[in-house]
Design a protein around this nucleic acid. Sequence first.
DNA 1: ATTTTGACCGTGC
DNA 2: CGCACGGCCAAAA
Length: 107
Amino acid sequence: MFESAPQPGTFKGRVLFVVRKVPPGRVATYKSVAALAGHPNAWRAVGTILKHCRRTSVPCHRVVNSDGRVGKYSDPLVKRELLRFEGVQVAKDRIKNFDQLRWPDLP
DNA sequence: ATTTTGACCGTGC
DNA sequence: CGCACGGCCAAAA
């Protein structure tokens, strides 16, 4: 029921820690999360990890694809709704103003 | 332990 | 816009 706290030292733990920091109304990419977690090329693994992560502990709905598409979810419809509820506008599986909503901020 | 799969990314046609 | 390939990492088979 209660998820264990992110274990620092494991890649998984750092990934969850990073995703937790994503502010509401903003979105992060799998690639960025991987980079912040210390493995710049492990974006694919990030997807695998977030899949295991069920709602409630981590806002995994704020992690999207690099090209601005919303990406998969246990229930894609729910993901769009959650984002929309936080003020993120989505049209055709695409995030509007993607570069501006990205977190961390684009250089 | 080895092989396959996948909530991905980038390039190319 | 669409589709095909290659690449990388962790989890599942």
